[in-house]
């Protein structure tokens, strides 16, 4: 979970992680099956999920209803040309689902972005995007706010006594070697660098620059990208002197 928003008329006596959200926004569908992210943790049977899906991806996700799906990334890119506008789109959809008035959503986006964007036009295109998303989400059922009653069922924690363990176990060292590639970070990628071999001069700059060592050289000394690990930072495409990397919006990861 990356961020939480709590809305209430009375004093909010909570801090940090949210144990039972009333609405879950998943900005990247590939996180749903990611054990390290577990974005649906704490979700109850009827908790709605707002899911940003890739319309062109064939991915099958098993998220129980109620789920509200849309390709917010495509809408954001179409409206502003910037992937970062995804936040605007998701904020608008979440506002609608939470029952916030559109004018408050608009004022919030204005206040958030006014100091950050270079021009009034950029702000206007974000506001237009928010309006479109808010309109799209108007058909969706607003979140049913949970009442406080379900807080009273808090039970005691299942605590354990930690016994003393030997330092070879109890020191923060990692004995298993070369296990970074086992941590697949390919689903971080929003854009995919694709090599066009006929443009490549085999200078190996991409191989040197890749911060994840996700680029290796094949038997003919052409670079090969390991898409299980490549995070899509696009340093390779940026550094390539012959523009041999084509950049595509990620569909499969």
């Amino acid at each position: 979970m990356a961020a939480f928003t709590r809305i209430a008329r009375e004093a909010i006596l909570e801090r940090g992680a949210m144990e039972h959200p009333a609405l879950v926004v998943v900005a990247d569908e590939t996180l749903v099956d990611e054990p390290a992210s577990a974005p649906l943790a704490g979700r109850r049977d009827d908790t709605p999920v707002l899911l940003n899906v890739n319309a062109q991806s064939a991915r099958q996700l098993s998220v129980p209803e109620p789920v509200f799906r849309a390709d917010f990334t495509a809408m954001a890119i179409a409206a502003t040309g910037r992937l970062s506008s995804l936040s605007t789109a998701l904020a608008a959809a979440a506002s609608r689902l939470s029952g916030l008035d559109e004018e408050h959503c608009r004022a919030g986006i204005d206040a958030e972005l006014a100091g950050e964007l270079a021009s009034r036009d950029e702000l206007e295109s974000n506001l237009a995007l928010a309006h479109d998303v808010y309109t799209l989400a108007s058909d969706w059922t607003a979140v049913a706010w949970p009442d406080d009653a379900d807080e009273s069922d808090v039970v005691e924690a299942d605590l354990v006594d930690l016994g003393l363990e030997p330092p070879c176990r109890a020191a923060p060292s990692i004995y298993a070697s070369a296990n970074s590639p086992a941590r697949h970070t390919g689903n971080w990628r929003q854009y995919r660098p694709v090599l066009e071999p006929d443009k490549c001069n085999r200078c190996w700059l991409c191989f040197v620059w890749c911060p994840e060592a996700a680029i290796t050289l094949d038997e003919n000394e052409f670079p090969t990208v390991d898409y299980d690990v490549c995070k899509g930072c696009l340093l390779c495409a940026h550094e390539c002197p012959t523009d041999a990397f084509r950049v595509e919006r990620e569909l499969g990861a």
């Binding site: 924690a157 299942d158 605590l159 354990v160 006594d161 930690l162 016994g163 363990e165 070879c168 176990r169 060292s173 990692i174 004995y175 298993a176 070697s177 296990n179």
Partner: peptide, 25 residues
């Protein structure tokens, strides 16, 4: 009382196993 839950201990044992540590208590 050093607060630590059974679920956290299970997660920790898993991390230690990935790190190549022997034995689980």
């Amino acid at each position: 009382r050093l607060l630590y839950t059974r679920a956290e201990k299970v997660s920790m044992d898993k991390l230690l196993s990935i790190a190549g540590k022997e034995g689980s208590s």
